[in-house]
């Protein structure tokens, strides 16, 4: 009897130790640090910089559609002026929501363009990796979302996002960001910003759908991503991205 008990305790001990080791080793396995592993990233967002006119309709549509609080942005537009002396001037007054007033510079402007920004819905998102309570997660379609009923508001994800796409919503006191209008795309609609863009600078759709404009762009065009060195593999991609854009 005593021997049985000893064996039982021994085996339980080994099982707990083994289980503990397995659990602790699991996060170290390649790729497992990123929750989006095995998720189907079926959507992509394409921004065509040459088409953007900086009208700010997208920013306003986003604010209205998602009740974005004042002074924070789920999407915004940046304006770049590259001067002949090499100086780069970037601005985004009120996130570009009211468009942009012309600016004058001492030096000649060589290049000027607008860059719409939003959450990159990365394949390997830093924000998901660092969220301590699984409030930030990747949906089965590959969209990075926040569960504001579970988020503790620690801001770790805000710090971890290399794109400045996240903020703490002062009303909910939780992390907030672009969801690609998840409530709309689930029903087959376009995100609000894509819908209102007058020039087609913003495209959204399924990569695997031959009817989707995104499908053709991804297959045929040369695309860039923001901060590729982070290894985040964004699913928001850019056409005509200048080297000065970060």
């Amino acid at each position: 009897m005593n021997k049985d008990r000893r064996n039982f305790i021994k085996q339980t001990g080994w099982s707990i130790l083994g289980g503990g080791l397995l659990i602790s080793v699991f996060p170290l396995l390649p790729g497992s640090a990123h929750a989006s592993k095995n998720k189907n990233h079926i959507f992509a967002f394409i921004v065509d910089i040459e088409k953007c006119i900086g009208c700010g309709k997208c920013v306003n549509a986003c604010i209205k559609e998602n009740s974005v609080p004042n002074d924070f942005y789920r999407t915004w537009v940046e304006r770049y002026h590259i001067l002949e002396n090499g100086e780069v001037i970037v601005d985004s007054p009120d996130g570009g929501s009211d468009g942009f007033k012309p600016q004058e510079f001492k030096h000649k402007v060589e290049k000027a363009f607008f860059v719409p920004k939003l959450c990159n819905h990365c394949k390997k998102p830093n924000c998901v990796q660092v969220c301590p309570v699984v409030a930030t997660y990747v949906s089965k379609e590959g969209v990075v979302l926040v569960d504001d009923k579970h988020c503790v508001g620690c801001s770790y994800c805000v710090q971890a996002c290399p794109y400045g796409a996240r903020f703490i919503n002062p009303e909910t006191r939780t992390a907030d960001k672009c969801t690609w209008c998840y409530h709309r795309i689930k029903k087959g609609y376009k995100p609000a910003c894509v819908l209102v863009c007058p020039t087609g600078a913003r495209q959204f759709g399924r990569i695997d759908d031959p009817e989707s404009p995104v499908h053709k762009t991804v297959k045929e065009k040369m695309l860039q991503i923001l901060k590729p060195e982070t290894g985040n593999e964004p699913m928001t991609m850019y056409l005509g991205l200048d080297k000065e854009v970060r």
């Binding site: 699991f26 660092v130 301590p132 620690c154």
Partner: peptide, 12 residues
């Protein structure tokens, strides 16, 4: 929540 629903990939 940090202890009840921990995310082991998160340093926090």
């Amino acid at each position: 929540n940090i202890m009840f629903t921990p995310k082991f990939t998160s340093a926090m």
